[in-house]
Amino acid sequence: MTEPLAHRALLYLDDVRVSFDGFKALKGLSLTIEPGEMRAIIGPNGAGKTTMMDVVTGKTRPDSGEVLFDGGGVDLTRLDEAAIAGLGIGRKFQKPTVFESHTVEDNLYLALKADRGPFASLFHRLGADEAARIDEILATVKLADRRDDLAANLSHGQKQWLEIGMLLAQEPKLLLVDEPVAGMTDAETMETAALLRRIHDSGKSVVVVEHDMAFVRELGVKVTVLHEGGVLSEGSIDHVASDPRVIEVYLGR
């Protein structure tokens, strides 16, 4: 019965195993993200959340298991980071990483969907449609008034938003967002939740990895709980929060 599921899914992970020097980071992880779905992934430290993202984005090659994209048509384990990004998978890191010595505008300019080859970029000229797209994204991530400032001079929260803006500029089908609200104020956290919901509403699939339960509740989407490299529980936030195994993992130590 896995065949139809893989065909329906945007992202399909089946029995993925990864180990580093004997440490088993993922022990048979299976996960399915449907087109247009937003999913929150929670789990304690070492549950395998970041490793899962590394596998999907091509940074880490799994020892075994299937990682398929776009209705099972593409095997992600055979591609490198740049190729996977080109397919339409954008990733936001846990620590905000923007290009600090570029302006906010140039950060988005570099991220805009375009030919990534060296010779294409050598002779590329910023077109009117690209400028319009940058304006649109600046408005979405509320950074229009910081357009010409260096990214280094943004606040922590603004850097996170700029990075989300850079993801949007890539026009991905799937956004992987790693702890977007770490270190944010409560107001910024709520703002970020609204921003992610807007992105989801525009038809993109979003996977959010997060520790902050209040934030996950604010998102109001299906939650997957990872523990020790596998799925522990899955369902609505109220369902997983009342799951005795989840309570055991989060509170039992």
């Binding site: 984005t57 940074k59 490198d80 980071e81 740049a82 990004a85 080109g86 954008g90 990733r91 890191f93 990483t97 923007v98 290009f99 600090e100 010595s101 570029h102 140039d106 300019y109 570099l110 991220a111 990534r116 060296p118 970029s121 050598l122 002779f123 590329h124 850079m166 890539q170």
Partner: peptide
Amino acid sequence: SKFGKVLIAIRDAESRTRFIGYR
């Protein structure tokens, strides 16, 4: 050029540049 901006991006955040799709 945009190529030059990519070079600076690589200098400042190499893996970010890679995950954005540049080789």
